[in-house]
Amino acid sequence: MKNLFYSALLLLAGSGCHAQPSTDYSAPAYRATLQRFDQRRTALAARYRQAATPAARATCLAEARDLWLTALDSTVFPAWESTPWSFYGHSWEPRQGSIACGYFVTTALHDAGLRLPRTLLAKQAATVIIRNLTTEAHMHRYRGISQAAFVQQMRQLGPGLYVLGLDYHVGFLRVREGGAVQMVHSSYTGAGGVVREAADASAALESQARVVGKISDDTTLLRAWLLGTPLVARGCTVKS
């Protein structure tokens, strides 16, 4: 069954169809904006290191969370939108070449300033990716529930950024204040490409098993992003 699924993905990859760009994109402007975010991160990291109390450090981490999410929401996700999907896609540049679902997750996080083994993690099963970004305390598993029920469960977990693992797919879920739930992923369905779409309407969210990791609530990950600490891969298998 899995082989049939993969065969279908490869046929889609060769179809040449993908979403059309929805926003203007300039590689120099993108890199310049990311550099400005990195400068703000560096300044905030200096404040964190100088903080004299737990409360002051907690304030810095809260600011770090907001800055990190803003970088993803306002710059990284829009830049990568409409980049074509393909099963073996591994582009480093938005809207150039193609990108697979795992590579989109790790590359988006990399572009937002998280130091991680982008290629190694991109080739792992979704659960392994999530476990390398957060802990069991921030993970939730669902099996055999409807798409609508799952989206409602996400609303109850609250606003933030999640990495979502499905039977054969991985992406982000962005839960907003007010209850809107977006799926941000390199989709093999429809036109085939990176999209931000309502989760309850996403064909790619169909799955028997679903696991999410709320990475925006993980202070260890936030601290690693803030301080530029490299993540060490755990439990990964090497694939060609």
Rank of each mutant, 00 (worst) to 15 (best):
A19H: 09
A19D: 09
H185S: 11
A62S: 13
D24G: 14
A55W: 06
T107R: 15
V128D: 04
I129A: 00
A8D: 07
C101W: 10
S82W: 09
A198K: 05
Q35W: 04
F104D: 02
L173K: 01
Y103T: 04
L205F: 05
C101A: 11
S91G: 09
V184Y: 02
P117C: 12
R40Q: 13
P28K: 11
Q39L: 15
R57W: 07
Q153H: 14
L173F: 14
R196W: 09
H110G: 08
S22D: 14
M154Q: 11
G190Q: 09
H90T: 12
A8S: 15
L227W: 02
V181R: 00
T134W: 03
S74V: 08
A64P: 08
T70C: 08
G171W: 06
Y30C: 02
A198D: 15
Y6N: 11
R31C: 02
A32M: 05
L69Y: 03
T219I: 07
W92F: 14
I215S: 05
A100K: 00
L205G: 03
P28W: 12
A209E: 13
M154I: 09
K214N: 06
R210G: 03
Q153E: 14
T70K: 05
L10G: 00
Y48A: 01
V170A: 08
G97I: 10
M1G: 12
G193E: 01
Y103M: 12
L231G: 04
S186L: 08
P78A: 06
S26Y: 05
C60T: 01
K214T: 03
A45H: 05
G160R: 01
D218V: 07
A137E: 14
S207E: 05
Q39F: 04
T135M: 04
L227S: 00
S26G: 12
F5E: 02
S82A: 15
T229N: 04
A108W: 01
D167R: 03
R210C: 07
C101V: 08
L166A: 00
R118A: 05
A149T: 13
K239Q: 14
A203C: 06
A204T: 11
I130T: 07
R141T: 10
Q35S: 12
F104Q: 02
K123A: 13
G171V: 06
G89L: 10
L11T: 09
A27I: 00
A112P: 10
F5K: 07
W92G: 01
V238H: 11
T119V: 12
L222G: 00
A199L: 08
L11Q: 11
Q20S: 13
N3L: 15
A209Q: 14
H110T: 10
S7H: 12
D167S: 12
A51G: 13
L205S: 04
A64G: 01
A56C: 03
A79K: 02
V212M: 08
L67P: 08
A51Y: 06
L231H: 04
D111T: 01
L205M: 05
G16V: 12
Q208H: 10
V128G: 01
G178E: 04
A198Y: 06
G171Y: 09
W92C: 07
R65F: 07
T189M: 14
A29E: 15
R196H: 02
S86F: 10
R36T: 15
W80V: 06
H18D: 00
T59S: 09
G14I: 00
A198G: 03
F77Q: 02
L61F: 07
G16S: 10
P54G: 09
W225N: 00
L61C: 04
E206T: 13
L109C: 08
H185G: 06
T83D: 04
K239W: 11
T33E: 15
